[in-house]
């Protein structure tokens, strides 16, 4: 059992945790009755995915992916002009030394999307509270059934 934990869970700790957090969030988003609690669950769910992506790019002992003077002036100049496929052969870079920046950059976009979603959702909650006087889903659904067809 301990052996299994050591070989399966410990090296991929982030990925296990991400699944647990994601499921917690999904459960709250689906199972909770209060709309705000649903939103909290939804945010947790989205944030867990950020953890997945961030974990992908991280390497042990790796640094931020910036080409600096230690690699020589020529490499810096070359990268300043846009780099390119030729640069990889002219200036070999040891990828183990640098974290993968792409997943992290992607998550900046995903964070913005998450914030925007939360903003829209909170605005909707505000309007729903004004219209129905409650944020409990069963009560709202009860009230809706009494509305005449006003489409």
């Amino acid at each position: 059992m301990m052996e299994w934990i050591k070989t399966t869970i410990v090296p991929h700790f982030n990925f296990w945790i991400y699944v647990v957090i994601m499921m917690l969030g999904l459960w709250a988003a689906i199972g909770k009755n209060n709309l705000i609690k649903k939103l909290i669950g939804l945010s947790i769910f989205q944030t867990a995915i950020l953890l997945l992506y961030v974990s992908m790019g991280v390497k042990e002992g790796a640094s931020i992916p910036i080409v600096d003077e230690t690699m020589g002036e020529a490499a810096v100049d070359f990268m300043a002009q846009g780099g390119g496929a030729a640069g990889a052969t002219a200036f070999p870079i040891n990828p183990d030394l640098f974290a993968n920046p792409l997943p992290h950059v992607l998550m900046l976009t995903a964070i913005v999307v998450g914030v925007a979603t939360l903003g829209v959702a909170l605005a909707l909650c505000q309007v729903i509270f004004r219209d129905f006087g409650t944020l409990e889903e069963p009560e709202i659904l009860n009230q809706i059934q009494t509305i005449q067809d006003d489409v």
Binding site: L35, L124, I128, L141, I147
Partner: peptide
Amino acid sequence: RRSRVAAFQYLVIGT
């Protein structure tokens, strides 16, 4: 009034 609730449900499922 129902459109707001429909939008909220859409938002949760869509996200």
